[in-house]
Simulated assay, not measured.
Amino acid sequence: MKPVVSAMQAWSCTVLSVFAILILSVLALLYRSGHEQLMGSINDPADGKAVSRTVFTAVFVYIGFFVFCGLQGMLHVRENRRGAISL
């Protein structure tokens, strides 16, 4: 199986996905718990659990990016170990 994206793009996407998963998970947990800094103003959302579900949906999308890009990076590693010539 051949990689679809370049090695640099694959590893960059993997690293960015890890950070996005961590940051968005923390935000979703804070919204779910009704943290005062996020829910305390009249301009903030009234239903923190609905916001939390939406943010967790974004986390699952980034998990998909992480898996896809990680597999692409591993394909590059496997291809380089075989001694393939990269152009």
Rank of each mutant, 00 (worst) to 15 (best):
L16P: 00
G34T: 02
A20I: 04
D44Y: 04
V61R: 01
N43H: 04
S25C: 14
S86R: 10
L75S: 14
Y31M: 11
G48V: 02
H76D: 01
L87C: 00
L75G: 10
M1L: 05
R53P: 00
H76L: 01
V15I: 15
F56P: 02
S41G: 06
M39Q: 06
R81H: 03
M74T: 09
Y31K: 08
G73T: 06
S12L: 01
I85C: 01
H35T: 10
G83F: 05
Q72T: 06
I63T: 14
H76I: 00
M8R: 11
P45H: 01
V26K: 11
G40Q: 01
A28F: 03
L22G: 13
L22A: 15
M39S: 08
L29S: 12
I42Q: 09
W11K: 09
V77T: 12
E36N: 03
P45R: 05
F19H: 10
F19Q: 11
T54C: 03
F68K: 06
F56C: 10
I42W: 12
I42Y: 10
I23Q: 08
V4S: 11
F68Y: 15
F66R: 07
A50I: 07
T14C: 10
R78S: 10
F65P: 01
S52V: 10
F60H: 07
T57Y: 04
L22V: 15
T14N: 06
M8G: 03
P45I: 08
F65V: 15
A20L: 08
L22Y: 04
Y62M: 15
V77W: 13
M8E: 14
D47W: 00
G40L: 07
S6I: 09
S86K: 11
L29C: 09
V61A: 13
A84M: 06
H76P: 00
